[in-house]
Structure formats: structure tokens, C-alpha cells
Design a protein around this nucleic acid. Structure first.
Length: 470
RNA sequence: GGCGAGAUAGCAAAAUGGUUAUGCAGCGGAUUGCAAAUCCGCCUAUCCCAGUUCGAUUCUGGGUCUCGCCUCCA
């Protein structure tokens, strides 16, 4: 039985889907005005892992990860670059897809863009207004009347009183309450036509929070199973989503309908014990990191920690992850891949290692424990040289989107510029074999040392000499 | 200030009211011409103070420290 830590109740709960055997999941995606950084990588990889595990568990999953392609920062950036909103967002959407693909992130079933769902947002805002939860302020903005929604703060554990006490929001006189948030932003004359939509409240554009409510309910229904995102979205974004989505269906039944059953939030990526973020400027983009580290190493680095724990980024930690992943691939190296035992093959979940793996994953996606099982299995493979054990290792790792490459390709990959090419290495190995045959060990060792200095490690096995990059 | 999360060996990171986490690093042995890889064995641990308990790293209370949210954020 899968258990999920639910932010709403702050405990692990048995997962029971609304519709048997099927899961509807929504994850807040990126605002596309720049390249994705490692924090974004974590969201994508973590929920990709969740998506894969739900599918591996036999669920029919509908996964939606949205794209915010209209927002203040996008408008500002486009103006700075003197390019259209569409050109800017398309550029970074393409870049995001490249990054996600590199990290082995499967495509969500739907990837809605906010600009494609403005009618649905307007519909929801109208409903909120009708339900007495929204009002148009003097400046033309349509705001959500937070105090009218009973239970505001239930997700983030904040009360309106607490929030007011720590008030840091700039009080704009047009809001009835400083905590009210914008549903519809009134258009400014200075803005391009591209960012203006007609509405019953005049030209304007949607607020951020309404996007997810509208896209979620349009694609997954008014009540769905899982909603995920980074821990920083818990408040106010997800709190506001609840207020909107549940507030919009208040008229439908006597009791209030629930928007989402399980709220999941992943922890931050940190740099020197501090949250990685655009505003702090301490971020590393995915593409930047991939210049130095194999994408699978980055994926493994993310999955080696629990999704709710903080994850400290540093080269030392990436090196560590690389070493660990190397051990797994090394275990597979010596054994031929038997195609009938891998691709598309179902894992035998009754097998003890698989059982341990499943128990770990079912316990709120405990990937560190699942990865530990992989290492135990690798040890088994090394000892037994059993093709079945190797196939099982590949299959289980495959559930996490790991270990699917040719081991040799992983172990010998990552040649930087100016590195030795394969032919040169092969020639050196031949020369060393000749020296060894002549029992000229000094020469053989000299060649090995020379290659090692070039980052090439030689390994003399029973089947001959192989090499890998350090 | 309000609310929340956390503190595990040299580093990273799980779990657990008593009994091996796991990876990297280190030490000893096997193997190897010597290495590397691999195997076997070992070494380092549960922030502090009380309490509950036969027994606490785990539960309870207090403290210290760290981080996050309360403004855009994954």
C-alpha cells in the first residue's frame, strides 16, 4: 500500500485514488523567462519519479505539468530583450524540454500553457464573483476576498491573524484586505497588445494563481488526487489555488467540495545551506551543470536524497554521486545484457530485492532506501555474476529512470575537450599489452600511469584490459 | 515577531523503542607481476539537558543551532 506524506494533514496517509486504478496529478511547472536551474531540475525529476512509480504500481496516470507563459517577469524580460512574449517563452520552453529530456524526465500527459486557458480562467473568476468571493477594485484589478473564504490558511497552517501580524505585503489601497490577491490584472497602457485579453472587467491578464486552478480543473476535473510543487509554493500559491478552486464550486452543493486529496511538496536545492533561487543569485542552470556532469549523475544525485529533504548542491556532492553511480554501472559492465530480460520486462515483485525496493518506494517514495537496495543488488551481481540478478538490477533502476544505458558508454563517456580519443587509448592499451608480454613491466606501468594522468583508468580483467574515465 | 521543517559517523544520506542501512573516503586481508575493479572483514554516529522505560538516536518536555515560509519563487 502506497503511503504519501500529505502537506494538508502533515502526516503520511494511505493513498486511495478517487477513481480506482487511476490517478490524476497536477504539478506546478516553470515560469519560462530564463533557463531552468537545479531547483527546477529537482521538481521535474522528483515528480517524474512519482509519475513512474505510480505507473509501475499499475495505475493509469494522467499527469499535468503546466507552463506559466504570461507574467510580470516575462513581460519585463521580453521588453528588455526587445522580443515578443511568444518568441521569448517559446525559446525557453524549448530549452526546458532539452534539459528535461537530458535528465530522463518523461513527458507529462498534458503541458498546458497559461495563455491557452484564459477563457477558463475568466469563467472561474466570474463564478467566484458570483459566489461573493471576488470583487473589482477601484484600480480595475479583480481581487479575491480572502476573508470571505472559510478555512483560508489550512494548507500552510497560517491563520489570517498570523499573516496580518507579520504583514510585509505592501498595502495597496485598492484591496479590501492586504492579503487579498489578484485574479485579473487590469491592463496598463504601456503594455503590449500581446499581454491583453478582453474580459467582463476590461482588458487585462490573469493573475498567477488563477492559472493553475483553471488548468487543473479543466484538465483533471474539480477534484483530483495529487497536486505537487516546490515547498515555496505552499504559501501563498497553493493556498490560493484551494481558495479559488473550492470557492468556485461553493454554489454546487451544500457542503464544500474538495479540490485536491494529496498535496506534495519537494524540498529545496541549496547552495552553502541557503536556498538556491533566482533572487539570491546563487543558482546553477541545468545546462551549466551538464557541461561538467553527466545528466544521469545529476538525476541520481537528486534521487539519492529523499524528495522532502533539503539537497545541498556542490561539486563534491556531484563527484560523490558520480562515484556511486559508477559502482552500479561497473557491476553491470561484465555481464552481457540479455534483451529478453530487460526492456519492457516486468519486474518480478515477489523477489526479495524487488520487495524491499517496493516497500521503500511505497513508503512516501523513499528513493534513498530504494537506491540502497540497488547497491545491495549490485553486490549480489558482483558476487554471483548472475545474469538474472543483473537484469533485476537494471529493471529496478529503470523504475527510477536509471541504469538504462550501455555501461561501457557511461563508464567511458564524459571526455572533455583535449581528452584522448578512443583510438589513441586503444593504441596505448595495445602497446602496454605488448610490453607486458615481453615482461617489460616498467614500460607497462609507465603507459598505465600516463593514461591515468590523462584521466583514463585501466583495469586488467580475466577477459583482457578494459578502461574507464576517472 | 508568527508559523513550519530539521540536527545521524570524515563527507553524503536512510531507518529504527533493543538486533548490518547504503554510497564515497579510511584501515586490514583475498585476488593481481604491480595496480584498478571485485570479494571478505574492520573503523568512525545518532546536537545538549531532563523525563517516561528493563532499555531512547527513536517517545515526551525544555534548550541550543540551522533552514524555510510569512513579497516573486520549484
Amino acid at each position: 500500500m502506497l503511503k504519501i506524506y500529505n502537506t494538508l494533514t502533515r502526516d503520511k496517509q494511505d493513498f486511495k485514488p478517487i477513481t480506482p486504478n487511476s490517478v490524476r496529478m497536477y504539478v506546478c511547472g516553470m515560469t519560462v523567462y530564463d533557463y531552468c536551474h537545479l531547483g527546477h531540475a529537482r521538481v521535474m525529476v522528483v515528480f517524474d519519479m512519482v509519475y513512474r512509480w505510480l505507473k509501475a504500481s499499475g495505475y493509469d496516470v494522467t499527469y499535468v505539468r503546466n507552463i506559466t507563459d504570461i507574467d510580470d517577469k516575462i513581460i519585463r524580460r521580453a521588453a528588455e530583450n526587445k522580443e515578443s512574449i511568444h518568441a521569448l517563452t517559446q525559446r525557453f520552453i524549448d530549452a526546458m524540454h532539452e534539459d528535461a529530456d537530458a535528465l530522463g524526465v518523461q513527458h507529462p500527459d498534458h503541458e498546458p500553457r497559461a495563455t491557452q486557458f484564459v477563457p477558463q480562467m475568466l469563467e472561474m473568476i466570474a463564478q467566484l464573483e458570483q459566489n461573493g468571493l471576488a470583487y473589482q477594485a477601484a484600480d480595475g484589478d479583480v481581487n479575491y476576498a480572502v476573508r470571505k473564504f472559510d478555512g483560508y490558511g489550512k494548507l500552510s497552517g497560517k491563520s489570517l491573524e498570523d499573516l496580518r501580524a507579520g504583514e510585509r505585503v505592501e498595502v495597496t489601497s485598492s484591496k479590501n484586505d492586504p492579503l487579498d490577491f489578484v485574479l485579473w490584472k487590469h491592463a496598463k497602457d504601456s503594455e503590449a497588445d500581446e499581454v491583453k485579453w478582453d474580459s467582463p472587467w476590461g482588458k487585462g491578464r490573469p493573475g498567477w494563481h488563477i492559472e493553475c486552478s483553471a488548468m487543473g480543473s479543466k484538465l483533471l476535473g474539480k477534484h483530483f488526487d495529487i497536486h505537487g510543487g516546490g515547498a515555496d509554493l505552499q504559501f501563498p500559491h497553493h493556498e490560493n489555488e484551494i481558495a479559488q478552486s473550492e470557492g468556485a464550486q461553493l454554489h454546487e452543493k451544500g457542503s464544500r467540495g474538495q479540490y485536491v486529496n494529496y498535496w506534495m511538496h519537494n524540498g529545496f536545492v541549496r547552495v552553502d545551506e541557503e536556498k538556491m533561487s533566482k533572487s539570491l543569485g546563487n543558482f546553477f542552470t541545468i545546462r551549466e551543470v551538464l557541461k561538467k556532469y553527466d545528466a544521469e549523475v545529476v538525476r541520481f544525485f537528486i534521487l539519492r536524497a529523499h524528495y522532502r529533504s533539503p539537497l545541498n548542491y556542490s561539486d563534491a556532492h556531484l563527484d560523490d554521486a558520480k562515484g556511486a553511480l559508477t559502482r552500479l554501472y561497473t557491476a553491470l559492465k561484465s555481464l552481457p545484457v540479455r534483451p529478453e530480460l530487460v526492456e519492457g520486462e516486468r519486474v518480478d515483485w515477489s523477489e526479495p530485492y524487488a520487495q524491499r525496493f517496493k516497500d521503500a518506494m511505497d513508503d512516501d517514495f523513499n528513493t534513498p532506501e530504494a537506491v540502497a537496495v540497488l547497491f545491495d543488488l549490485a553486490n549480489e551481481v558482483n558476487r554471483s555474476q548472475s545474469p538474472e540478478a543483473a537484469a533485476q538490477l537494471r529493471a529496478l533502476a529503470g523504475v527510477l529512470g536509471l541504469l538504462q544505458r550501455d555501461p561501457q558508454a557511461f563508464l567511458q563517456g564524459g571526455a572533455g575537450e583535449g581528452g584522448l580519443d578512443d583510438a589513441a587509448i586503444a593504441a596505448q592499451i595495445e602497446a602496454r599489452i605488448a610490453a607486458k608480454k615481453a615482461r617489460d613491466f616498467a614500460e607497462a606501468d609507465r603507459i598505465r600511469k600516463e593514461l591515468l594522468e590523462a584521466g583514463i583508468v585501466l583495469e586488467d580483467g580475466a577477459a583482457g584490459t578494459t578502461w574507464r574515465r576517472a
